[in-house]
């Protein structure tokens, strides 16, 4: 059952991911990416990380992709305005990433991990559990994240603000 679910989600994820890359229309790409994200969210649920799954949906599907779509629409890129990329370049890209895949897959051969004590903690992905780790061990990174968000906020606002003296430059 779960394995079948896994296969389905994996298939969906990879298919949609490929469609993201090969769709002519950017908006379609965005939509396929959203589907991919949902497939990944499904994987999270399979992996007992419900909280993460929901957060994933909220953050990626709910915020990030909406922003993408927003920008796409704002810039009105619904026609495929992408110029033709030379075949050689595409070929090179395909070769490069293919090589990367092969390397990654090859490196996975003979996977033997340290066998952790397999006491299954079912509530690993609960808010409580995650919160505990986040606010004890990972407190500093958590706080640092605020600096990060602050920086990105200032950056985005600065770039977004229209220039007052447009004629000077």
């Amino acid at each position: 059952m779960t394995l079948n679910l896994f296969y389905f989600l994996a298939f969906l994820g990879i298919l949609c991911a490929l469609l993201v890359v090969f769709s002519k229309n950017p908006v379609h790409s965005v939509l396929y990416l959203i589907l991919t994200f949902f497939a990944i969210a499904g994987h999270y649920v399979l992996l007992n990380a419900q909280f993460l799954a929901v957060v994933h949906v909220i953050v990626y599907a709910g915020a990030i992709m909406v922003l993408f779509l927003h920008v796409l629409m704002l810039l009105n890129l619904n026609q495929d305005a992408e110029p033709h990329k030379s075949g050689a370049l595409k070929f090179a890209a395909a070769i490069c990433s293919g090589a990367l895949l092969i390397i990654l897959i090859a490196s996975l051969k003979g996977t033997n991990l340290i066998t952790a004590e397999q006491t299954v903690v079912a509530d690993l992905g609960t808010v409580k559990n995650l919160g505990k780790v986040l606010f004890t061990d990972y407190l500093l990174p958590f706080e640092i994240t605020s600096v990060l968000l602050m920086a990105s906020m200032i950056g985005a606002v600065m770039l977004g603000k229209p220039e007052k003296n447009q004629s000077t430059e």
Partner: peptide
Amino acid sequence: ALFTIGVL
């Protein structure tokens, strides 16, 4: 695979 598709 997903990572590679991203890189691609």
